[in-house]
Design a protein around this nucleic acid. Structure first.
Lengths: 215, 215
DNA sequence: ACTTGTCCTGTCATGCCGTCAGCTTACCGA
DNA sequence: TCGGTAAGCTGACGGCATGACAGGACAAGT
């Protein structure tokens, strides 16, 4: 399905080529974790990978192009986030568990990929459709499930009619993403990680069901 | 109180100098709105301002330094956000109004300063303390009021004891910021601006008071 | 060993970075 | 009016990253 990996000038990459390509991506990933996006240079990535800048340009048009590649890989893995919600109940104690596990899984995913997600967020906010699509791909996996859950509760009359399921779900997902991206900020406000999670879960539960959880 | 404006090499800037400096900041601001942060070059800003790159370096150490300056100005204006909450009530119909106006004011502020806020967000997420402090300065103005409101309701027994006011307030503020930054994203999910606001206000009200608003 | 196609790099023109010396301009006191 | 002084600006330059290309190294099959 996914077309073969190709170099910029159209050649098909063989085993060795793919290895260097991947090594470049790995090194870029590392660099993004340790230095500001704006300061990541092709020459540094190449040096770190023990190769030359020219090699980098054989596989990627520029830094941004390579970042997109990494982000794409991550987005695919991010599909697993759907499992945090598949077949879960929002009623009674089970609802509280669902909320907690969603928060847990989400924060964990963000923490694992924070460097690349920062850049994706920026690109999306700047209006770049490619980054925007990737961000959607990740968030949709959670957002769609959440929207469905709310819509279902709504059809049963457990949630007010004037609630827009997509708007609420989207806002909650945005909240999770933002909190995950700025976890350190909460420490300044005197909030520890461990305290943060249950309060986030509370907000998610409130948003989805409109009611306080039964613990 | 605020020390005189100085050039990089320590001279005091006079009237003309401050004008050029401001012009450079304005042009930088514009460039940030129209092109990706990563691609904003000193030479472009200088050209746009009708001056030379060397002049830029007389007033700012680099692009980042100038961005910090703009952000600082914005953060000062952002102090007005406190007024959205000062002396407001979270009880009854007034509570619903408070939530609505908070959401309105917040989104408006973000929309007006979206370009610079994107960069501040990125810098903060990357761990740069200078950006981080600016982000705090803006969010604190809302966050502190919100935390106080929740704590007060809590002391009156209207909010559960196991709620951490700072954590909930911080999460809500993060949500507002994230939604504001990605307003376009919601259109893809079929949510219009006008629909988004009341649903956000609902979430804020739920988060603060734990109860649905009376409209 | 030879051929073939993949893979890598040295090299080069181009353009931005960041600094400095030196020129112009504005202000001020005599 | 006339220097004197400090502010303000820029041309020019070495240094480094970019991005393209052509040619050399390498692996695999014959």
């Amino acid at each position: 399905m996914t077309g073969q990996v190709r170099t910029v000038d159209g050649r098909v990459a063989g085993r060795r080529g793919q290895a260097t390509r991947q090594k470049l991506l790995d090194c870029l990933s590392e660099m993004l974790s340790s230095s500001p996006y704006r300061d990541v240079k092709v020459i540094d990535v190449a040096r770190k990978a023990g190769t030359s800048p020219a090699t980098f340009y054989q596989y990627f048009p520029d830094v941004e192009g390579a970042v997109l590649e990494i982000a794409e890989q991550m987005a695919t893995e991010g599909g697993q986030l759907t499992e945090l919600l598949a077949g879960r109940s929002w009623v009674g104690k089970a609802g509280w568990t669902t909320a907690q596990e969603l928060v847990d899984g989400f924060l964990e995913f963000w923490r694992r990929n924070d460097a690349i997600l920062r850049v994706v967020d920026l690109g999306a906010a700047e209006g770049d459709k490619r980054f925007y699509k990737i961000r959607m791909k990740i968030l949709n996996s959670v957002n769609n499930s959440l929207t469905d859950s709310i819509a279902e509760l709504q059809s049963k009359g457990r949630v007010d009619k004037d609630v827009n399921p997509a708007a609420v779900a989207g806002s909650l997902v945005a909240m999770l993403a933002a909190v995950a991206a700025h976890q350190k900020g909460f420490q300044t406000w005197g909030v520890k990680q461990a305290e943060l999670k249950p309060n986030l879960a509370l907000l998610v539960h409130l948003g989805v069901t409109g009611k306080k959880p039964t613990k």
